[in-house]
């Protein structure tokens, strides 16, 4: 583990240098919530940057797999970017996205171009929403991997961990700011991390989901509760859009244009036509079947295929649901 201490001023100096060659995205208040915005030099001087708190409303995938994009234009996006304040739930989701788009026989060069040219500076959560449930999934509100640099607020500054070659290179080129490595800094963040973890556990203590509950979810495929719990669903697809690890997309050919112009845009397994084949047959014609599919995909299918649970407990799907469906309650009811 490679740890450094940066004061708030040192971190600002670092960002100032990074602004020369990168677009820097930071968390900012947006109607009482957090969103990412582009940081300017003026912002750096005049505003208090939010480094930690909790996750943004915007899922991290939106930086890499765009909502809508022409994938027949032969150019990749290689703009240098830095995203500051990414949370563990989003880092875990990126691991899923990376496997989907950058591993195997076929590589999505659009995704890869953006991913490779982005530096991720994550941070420990210092607060939680009542929809946060990373701890139910055995995750923590602080990261152990998947970041280039991670910031753990400590006293008047940050314990900074370099977690990748990109992160270590950043330290090397800015050695005068980072100073020397100090392993003892680990102790400085332990207490705060544990406190935060307890906070998230407390938020979720009313839910009686067992440790690694997802391993047993397939046993409840035929539960009657799928139909009941999906009752308030209006099939808007907000949950899949807001989910940082929902990767599904549709390729659509633009009508009326000659040649091959394909737009790739986010799709949702909650929509009726998602799995319908030519001729009209549909493996999941009923709403509750599509609703169930999302849970099984997250907790059974992707773990089976990728070795990763594709729900990271970010709680966005709970927050954005028009029908006020709480995933935790659904799982509890279904698995009773």
């Amino acid at each position: 583990m490679e740890l450094y201490y940066l004061s708030k001023d040192s971190l600002k100096r670092l960002i100032n240098i990074l602004l020369e060659e990168n677009t820097v995205h930071t968390l900012r208040e947006n109607n009482g919530d957090l969103d990412y915005g582009v940081l300017t030099r003026d912002d750096l001087e005049s505003t208090e940057i939010i480094y930690s708190k909790y996750r943004a409303i915007q899922p991290i995938k939106s930086f890499f797999s765009l909502f809508s994009e022409d994938v027949t234009a032969d150019k990749t996006d290689t703009r240098k970017r830095i995203i500051i304040g990414v949370k563990t739930c989003d880092l875990n989701a990126l691991a899923v996205m990376d496997k989907m788009f950058m591993e195997g026989e076929f590589i999505d060069t659009y995704y890869k171009g953006r991913r490779e040219n982005t530096i991720i500076i994550s941070s420990d959560c210092t607060d939680a929403k009542d929809t946060c449930f990373c701890t139910l999934l055995g995750n923590n509100p602080f990261p152990s991997s998947g970041f280039d640099l991670n910031l753990s607020p400590s006293e008047e500054g940050f314990v900074v961990e370099a977690g990748s070659e990109k992160g270590r290179a950043l330290v090397r080129t800015n050695r005068n700011i980072f100073g020397e490595e100090d392993k003892r800094l680990e102790e400085k963040r332990i207490e705060k991390r544990q406190k935060m973890k307890s906070k998230v556990e407390n938020i979720n203590k009313k839910f009686s989901l067992k440790k690694e509950f997802w391993k047993e979810l397939p046993l409840y495929f035929n539960s009657e509760m799928w139909e009941e719990t999906s009752g308030p669903c209006v099939e808007c697809g907000a949950c899949t859009n807001a989910c940082p690890s929902c990767y599904c997309f549709l390729l659509s050919d633009i009508e009326g244009k000659p040649g091959f112009k394909k737009i790739k845009y986010w799709d949702s397994c909650q929509f009726t036509g998602y799995a319908r084949v030519a001729g009209g047959a549909n493996p999941r014609p009923k709403l509750f079947e599509r609703f169930r599919n999302r849970y099984l995909c997250k907790y059974d299918y992707r773990p089976g295929a990728l070795g990763l649970v594709a729900c990271t407990g970010c709680g966005r799907c709970i927050e954005c649901c028009q029908g006020k469906i709480d995933k935790r309650e659904v799982l509890e009811k279904v698995m009773k």
Partner: peptide
């Protein structure tokens, strides 16, 4: 097996059959 397919590359999700993608 037949399922709806969009990408054919094992990425878009449509042809899911349990943990498998029919295309891949």
């Amino acid at each position: 097996m037949e399922r709806n397919m969009s990408c054919g590359l094992g990425k878009c999700g449509h042809c899911g059959l349990g943990k498998y993608f029919v295309c891949k």
